Simulated assay, not measured.
Amino acid sequence: MPIQSLLDFRDPSICKRLVIKIGSALLVDATGQVEAEWLRTIVNEIATARELGIEVVVVSSGAIAIGAKKLDFPDGGRRTLAEAQASASVGQIELASVWSKLLAERRLVAAQMLLTLDDFESRRRYLNISATIRRLLKSGVVPVVNENDTIATGEIKFGDNDRLAARVAQACDADGVILLTDVDGLYDRHPNDPEAERLAEVRGITAEIHDMADSESGSGVGTGGMTAKLLAAEIADRAGIALAILDGRPENPLARAMASQAGTIFVPQREDSGRRAWIGGRMRFNGSLTVDDGCVTALRDGNSVLAAGITRVAGNFKRGDIIQVLDVAGREIAKGLVEYSADDVEAIMGKQSGELEAILGHAPRSAVIHRDHLVMM
């Protein structure tokens, strides 16, 4: 049974594997130093979870913020890509050292994993990530994951560790994700508004829920914001993983949130297979297909993308690529593994199945994107 409440996150019969993400604003102070005493309370909570039988993976921000202060870079080291990468190179050493030291105090071994968006977009590398994390957990190790900002560019970058945490949770088949941040959940309007109310539970992320989000990071240190957290919740939801946004500012934040029932939990509404969850979590694409309203209706009824319903082809994709499916208004309605190259789709779009062999010169495949390789958004 999937997680249904905050208390379920500390029940090993329900939550056997947990991903905890910690934002830069919590972990690094204004002088660029790690909040070691606060972090020690988090480590104690990780150790308690391990004693209960819950495996824990950490996604830790903070490397750029730490390195920028050491290098005396302005704007948190994010003024240029080169400064961000240099900051990460310096900060990651210290960040890993702190995690290793504090976990060792509780007789736990830390493992560092630095990953990029490309690592998750490649099916082979994604499966390697999954295997590595599972093996580390089986050995009693606490993996500490961060984006590899020393090499990541705009094209191969998550841009926030919220979505990274959700993808890590997918890869290791976690039951829950906890995002520790500097707010205590999702509010129906900006939290500074005196009439704002916190949502204790969300079942299904709708356009109305997205409208509540603030896309900016409140601290000026991180790169997330509530929009990124909602996108992470959508990624988790596709794999049947619950996600909670909790206030990480006090010491022992997990225990405090559980005791007070403060925070927002996103209860999953679907549970795609591992491959479908991977497809649904994809963030980069070599192209897209635009389909007509009839095709949209057919897809929502569980059908495949056929050539007859395609009105536009964009990009330079090849057979086997994961691409987007858009409606006539340009909204993403699905992602899927395409059975034809972009040139072939352009040649057959709008055509009926009986016409395809004459156009292509060979027997056509059953669909442009088969329903077994299609994930609705």
Score class of each variant (00 low, 15 high):
Ser5Ala: 13
Cys15Tyr: 11
Leu18Thr: 11
Gly23Thr: 14
Ala25Ser: 15
Val34Arg: 07
Ala36Lys: 15
Ile42Val: 12
Ile46Lys: 00
Gly53Ile: 00
Ala63Gly: 12
Ile64Leu: 05
Ile64Met: 06
Pro74Trp: 07
Gly76Ile: 13
Leu81Gly: 03
Ala84Glu: 01
Ala86Phe: 02
Gln92Ser: 07
Leu103Glu: 09
Arg107Ile: 11
Leu115Gly: 10
Ser122Leu: 08
Arg123Cys: 07
Arg123Glu: 15
Arg123Asn: 04
Tyr126Met: 12
Asn128Ser: 10
Ser130Leu: 12
Ala131Leu: 15
Ala131Thr: 08
Lys138Ile: 06
Val142Ala: 04
Pro143Val: 08
Asp149Thr: 01
Ala152Thr: 00
Ala152Tyr: 00
Ala174Thr: 12
Leu180Ile: 01
Leu180Ser: 05
Thr181Ser: 08
Asp193Thr: 06
Leu199Thr: 04
Ile209Ser: 08
Thr227Gln: 10
Asp237Gly: 06
Ile245Pro: 08
Leu246Gln: 12
Asp247Gly: 12
Glu251Gln: 11
Asn252Thr: 07
Asn252Pro: 03
Arg256Phe: 00
Ala257Met: 01
Pro268Ser: 05
Ile279Pro: 13
Phe285Thr: 06
Asn286Thr: 11
Gly287Ser: 15
Ser288Asn: 14
Leu289Pro: 14
Ala298Glu: 13
Leu299Phe: 09
Val305Gly: 09
Val313His: 10
Ile322Gly: 07
Val328Trp: 01
Ile333Glu: 02
Lys335Val: 08
Ala347Arg: 03
Lys351Met: 02
Ser353Glu: 08
Gly354Ala: 00
Leu356His: 08
Pro364Cys: 01
His370Ser: 07
His373Asp: 15
Met376Glu: 00
